[in-house]
Design a protein around this nucleic acid. Structure first.
Lengths: 223, 223
DNA sequence: AATGACCGTATGTACGTACGTTCGGTTTTT
DNA sequence: AAAAACCGAACGTACGTACATACGGTCATT
């Protein structure tokens, strides 16, 4: 675990107990942190992490430059928080949607649908996570990688089950197949605009269908 | 067209005619420019365009900082040259390999093989082209986009022919299908290491097989 | 009920640094 | 001697971060 600053997130609520707080027009600590992170996410998605200066983030979030450093002690930690939150919500969302689904093929459809849906609802965040993978260093990079790895493992286990259940013998490498899927999904931010293009569900259906036929069709059993 | 500095590239060769040049241990103008661009490409691929300082590029290319500006008048133009050259060689290579191939399915196999092969031989350059798409601005950005667009159009025309020849009616969006393929290909730089993993040919075969089965299998005709 | 120590939140300002670029000059090549 | 190639040193700027400070609440003590 990494922690060195307030960032209590969900630890002891201030003004604890009383639901009616008179002060604090701007909301709780977490709400304000969220607001800042959302502003930062949008800006980074637009201009990239390197070119997103803390001054610009502050302007975007209507906070003073120094005020930012009350919520995180460095720019890199800000990016870390963005990535961590996004990946956690991606993972939790997927685990939840997967609950009760047993057919591997349906599991994959659920996974793709969840991912595309999550993308459509959080384009900026997913763009940042896809594009700024290596902007973190040291322990922060490791922890973010661990989260990404969890997401991969979960998806990979679905792919494995599909192979095991439907394929007699196959020349396809499962890692390659999984990475192809991730490529398709992580590249979305380069071209897909849910507002302009077909609906997330439609796109998700096409992606899973193509992937499933691609993987199953290549096996010696045909369709 | 964009040009405003020497960058003669292939214009009047100096030392023309004589193959035996006594001077110039360091080679012709183009050779030295290439050397610098290659050094820059490697560095940018490693640390990203934003963090690749001109000082570091100069060090990497064993040129003085000011010496760089003899070859291009700005950092952005350096990136532009890298992207332009890579895309041009990608396109020319593909057009050449496609020559004489008429079967659309074989055309797609050729395209994927060419791309993966080109990637394996120029990992750093393709990484830079995939990752720093939007680091160019203005006219340079437009011209790079145009090249990318040409590459897309060429691939898209193959996909179209596949659909037209082998599909009676299909619910699949051709643009989506093409972008999925590009996602798979452009994401290679995130995970594929030809030295460690399976050979480029093997990976290319798997990618094209999956894609073809994915696209054809979904059509109502089955396999 | 009033006091005062304390904490969370927020700000303005300044520091040091690293960056892209330029300039004037020197060396090398033709 | 002219031109091309190259360089050291500097300039201006924009950045991340640190510092000193201020305001408003909370709460134990008086």
């Amino acid at each position: 675990m990494i922690s060195q600053k307030p960032e209590r997130l969900f630890e002891h609520e201030r003004n604890s107990g009383a639901a009616n707080r008179k002060s604090d027009i701007r909301g709780t600590y977490d709400e304000r942190l969220n607001h800042i992170l959302e502003a930062a996410t949008g800006l980074i998605a637009r201009v990239g992490y390197g070119r997103a200066s803390m001054r610009a983030v502050a302007r975007e979030a209507t906070v003073s430059l120094a005020g930012l450093y009350h919520y995180f002690d460095s720019k890199e930690r800000m990016l870390f928080l963005i990535q961590t939150r996004t990946f956690n919500s991606l993972l939790n969302n997927l685990r939840e949607k997967l609950h009760g689904v047993t057919d591997p093929i349906e599991q994959l459809r659920v996974m793709v649908r969840a991912h595309v849906g999550h993308f459509a609802a959080n384009m900026a965040a997913l763009k940042v996570c896809s594009h700024e993978l290596d902007s973190l260093t040291g322990a922060a990079h490791d922890e973010a990688s661990r989260l990404r790895r969890d997401y991969y493992d979960l998806t990979r286990s679905i792919v494995d089950r599909i192979y095991d259940a439907h394929t007699t013998e196959s020349t396809l490498d499962r890692h390659v197949a999984t990475m192809c899927l991730f490529g398709t999904l992580n590249w979305l931010y380069r071209w897909y605009d849910p507002k302009r293009d077909r609906s997330p569900t439609t796109v998700a259906n096409q992606i899973s269908s193509q992937f499933l036929h691609g993987v199953l069709g290549v096996s010696s059993r045909g369709c």
